[in-house]
């Protein structure tokens, strides 16, 4: 099973699409590892500098409709090879979300009011997140500040995380 803890990268924008996460010009790569330097290269976000801001992060927090656009699983892979296995957002495009869990990664939805609070409290500060998959709780920490945020994922998504993805699950069951 993958790790869902670590440093948080805040991407304060809705509709971040898969072309921004990994541009089509890199789709000629046939290994996941090769995508590593290009994550979020075309992201339209004021002040964001992919070469400085991504490493070392392990969790992305964003807004609505994250991962819209193409079906390319290169988007989750580009996160995965950068040690980012968890994206938390208000909502996701269907294919992106399914691709995340299919890879044994997590795409977790939180309500916009909760996200607003997280952005206000933590953005711009060095923030760490710990995921407790047994209790379904995220623990956000920055200096003295600490917030526990409950979350939920479906039984199927949990089974995929535990099986380290859909290939493992499907091979066992079908």
């Amino acid at each position: 099973m993958k790790q869902f803890n670590g440093k948080v990268l805040f991407l304060d924008r809705s509709d971040i699409n898969t072309d921004e996460i990994i541009p089509a010009r890199y789709l000629t790569e046939i290994s996941k590892e090769a995508l590593k330097p290009f994550l979020l290269e075309d992201l339209e976000l004021a002040g964001f500098n992919p070469s400085k801001d991504i490493l070392p992060s392990n969790v992305v927090i964003s807004r609505a409709n994250f991962g819209c656009g193409s079906s390319r699983e290169h988007a989750p892979w580009a996160f995965e090879v950068n040690d980012i296995n968890l994206v938390v957002a208000e909502s996701f495009a269907r294919i992106f979300k399914q691709n995340m869990f299919n890879c044994g990664m997590m795409a977790v939805e939180l309500q916009s009011a909760i996200l607003d609070d997280l952005f206000t409290t933590f953005m711009g500060k060095e923030t760490l997140l710990e995921t407790d998959l047994k209790k379904n709780v995220f623990v956000f920490k920055s200096g003295e500040i600490c917030k526990e945020i409950p979350f939920s994922i479906s039984g199927f998504d949990r089974a995929l995380v535990e099986a380290d993805g859909w290939v493992g699950y499907a091979d066992k069951h079908y």
């Binding site: 390319r72 294919i95 399914q98 890879c103 859909w166 290939v167 499907a170 091979d171």
Partner: peptide, 27 residues
């Protein structure tokens, strides 16, 4: 993602990622 095109024929056709594709090919 534009696999949805084939719904024009009254089919259920969906774009998926590589892992779904892989399982589709296999199973």
């Amino acid at each position: 993602s534009h696999t949805c095109t084939h719904g024009a024929f009254g089919a259920f056709a969906a774009g998926v990622g590589t892992t779904d594709l892989e399982v589709g090919i296999l199973k």
